[in-house]
Amino acid sequence: SASLEDVKTAVLGLLVILQTKLYTLPASHATRVYEMLVSHIQLHYKHSYTLPIASSIRLQAFDFLLLLRADSLHRLGLPNKDGVVRFSPYCVCDYMEPERGSEKKTSGPLSPPTGPPGPAPAGPAVRLGSVPYSLLFRVLLQCLKQESDWKVLKLVLGRLPESLRYKVLIFTSPCSVDQLCSALCSMLSGPKTLERLRGAPEGF
């Protein structure tokens, strides 16, 4: 439990870093931090981490990651405290083949985003970082199938509809809506759902 406290501190630090690096160059920093966060949550489900502190780590990670939004130009952003989304000039939600690297070039400044813009690109060529939603999407499927803490599952179920409104997140990387529907149906009809959940409301 003591070591998990250190892990929790590290994860919180990564969330803060991602919130900053999403809007700064090099964009590969945001890509790497995002991948680290998603990989860490995957390990929770792989090794069945069920301690309360592990659940709190997942809760905080999902609470942040499910706020990711994308505009029509595929640029990622996060809402501010007033709910207004600021889109990044440097990070996009497109999935890119590994051989192309985590970044790609664009020939010049991008068109203005639909929300308040981030800082304008400084040079004639900007390297865009790929932060594909499919990585998070796979972890969300694991959550629906394996999550043991009701608070975490409730958060994910509550945030998913709003995330799905931003269709560009889903359609720019390999996210299977069929698998999502299947996971939701299995969660509702499967007898093991109630068996594994802690803290579920009576009558769920």
Rank of each mutant, 00 (worst) to 15 (best):
R198Y: 09
L144A: 01
S72V: 10
Y90M: 06
L110K: 14
T114E: 15
T114L: 11
D6W: 01
S111H: 10
V168A: 07
L37R: 02
H40P: 00
L160H: 01
D94W: 03
L153C: 02
M36K: 06
Y45D: 00
V16T: 14
Y95S: 10
Q146H: 11
P174C: 06
P26L: 01
R159E: 03
I41M: 11
G129M: 06
L157M: 05
G118N: 12
Y23M: 06
V33M: 04
K21W: 01
F204C: 11
L160M: 09
H47Q: 12
E5F: 05
V177H: 02
D149H: 06
A27G: 09
L135N: 11
D94L: 04
L155G: 10
T50G: 08
L15C: 13
L160Q: 01
I53R: 01
G190C: 14
S48A: 12
S55P: 05
L25G: 15
L188K: 00
R198K: 14
M187F: 08
T9Y: 06
S173T: 06
P113S: 08
L12Q: 15
Y49H: 03
E99S: 10
P174Y: 06
S130M: 09
P132V: 04
Y45H: 00
G115K: 09
S107C: 12
L141M: 09
K81V: 15
Q179W: 04
K154M: 07
T20Y: 07
C175T: 05
L78F: 12
K192W: 10
M96L: 13
R58F: 00
K192T: 14
R32C: 04
L110H: 13
Y49A: 03
L135V: 11
Q19D: 06
L67R: 15
E99Q: 11
P79V: 09
A54G: 04
P201L: 04
R75T: 03
L136P: 04
V139C: 15
E202R: 09
S88P: 02
G77T: 04
F171D: 11
S148R: 14
S186G: 15
R69E: 04
E99H: 13
T106V: 13
I53V: 12
C181G: 05
M36Q: 05
G13H: 01
P191W: 09
P113E: 15
R196P: 03
V38Y: 03
E202V: 13
S189N: 10
H40D: 00
Y133S: 04
K46H: 12
K8G: 09
L73R: 08
R127V: 08
T20G: 08
V139I: 14
M36T: 07
Y166W: 09
G203C: 07
S56K: 12
G108E: 10
E162I: 13
R159P: 00
T20Q: 13
D82Y: 11
R198L: 07
L51R: 02
F137D: 02
L67K: 14
L43F: 10
Y34M: 07
H29R: 04
V177W: 03
P191K: 10
Q142Y: 08
L153E: 01
A10K: 00
T193W: 08
P79D: 05
T106P: 15
A30L: 03
F171T: 15
F137N: 03
K145I: 11
K167H: 08
L197F: 14
L194K: 06
R159H: 09
L180D: 00
T31Y: 11
C91L: 13
V139H: 02
L160G: 01
G13Y: 00
P89E: 08
T114I: 15
D178R: 05
S182F: 06
L22D: 01
I57H: 00
T114S: 13
S176V: 06
A125Y: 15
E99P: 15
Y95K: 09
L153H: 01
T24D: 08
S72A: 13
Y95V: 12
S72I: 11
L157W: 00
V131C: 15
R58E: 00
S148M: 11
L141F: 03
L18Q: 01
L157D: 00
H29G: 05
G129V: 12
Y133C: 05
R196G: 06
A30N: 02
G190L: 09
L76I: 15
A200C: 14
P161V: 13
A54P: 01
T9C: 11
Y23C: 05
W150Q: 02
F171Q: 10
L153K: 01
V38H: 02
P161D: 05
L144H: 00
P26R: 02
P116C: 15
A125P: 14
K104M: 14
E35T: 11
K21F: 00
S130C: 13
C175G: 07
L188T: 07
E97C: 09
R75W: 03
D178Q: 06
K105T: 13
C143V: 05
C175M: 03
L164M: 06
L73C: 13
C93W: 04
G118L: 14
L4Q: 13
P117R: 15
P191M: 11
Y95M: 09
R58Y: 00
K21N: 03
I170H: 08
G158T: 13
A70F: 03
R86S: 08
F137K: 01
S39A: 10
D6E: 05
L140N: 01
P132M: 04
Y23G: 04
E147W: 00
I41F: 02
I41C: 04
V7T: 07
E162H: 11
R159Y: 05
L43V: 11
S28H: 11
E195N: 10
L188D: 02
H29L: 02
Y90E: 04
L169I: 04
L128R: 14
G199L: 06
P109E: 14
K154A: 07
L78A: 09
Y95W: 13
L180R: 01
Y49V: 03
F87V: 05
E195K: 11
C181F: 06
G13R: 02
V85P: 08
L14T: 07
R58G: 00
A27E: 07
L43W: 07
K104P: 14
E147C: 00
L135M: 15
Q142A: 10
G83P: 03
F204T: 06
G118K: 14
G158V: 07
C143E: 00
Y45N: 00
A54V: 02
A70W: 02
A2C: 11
S56Q: 15
S134V: 08
S88E: 02
P52W: 02
Q42T: 10
P112E: 11
W150G: 01
L18R: 01
H40V: 02
P26T: 04
K81N: 11
R127M: 15
H44S: 01
V7P: 01
P26G: 02
C91T: 07
R196D: 05
Y90A: 06
E147M: 00
R159G: 05
P132D: 10
L18I: 06
K46D: 13
S173C: 02
L155N: 11
L140G: 01
P124L: 11
G203D: 10
L155A: 13
L136M: 10
L153G: 00
L135W: 10
S1A: 11
P109L: 11
P191Y: 13
C175P: 03
A183W: 02
K21S: 04
L18V: 03
R75C: 06
C91H: 11
R58L: 01
L12R: 15
T31Q: 15
K81M: 12
V11R: 01
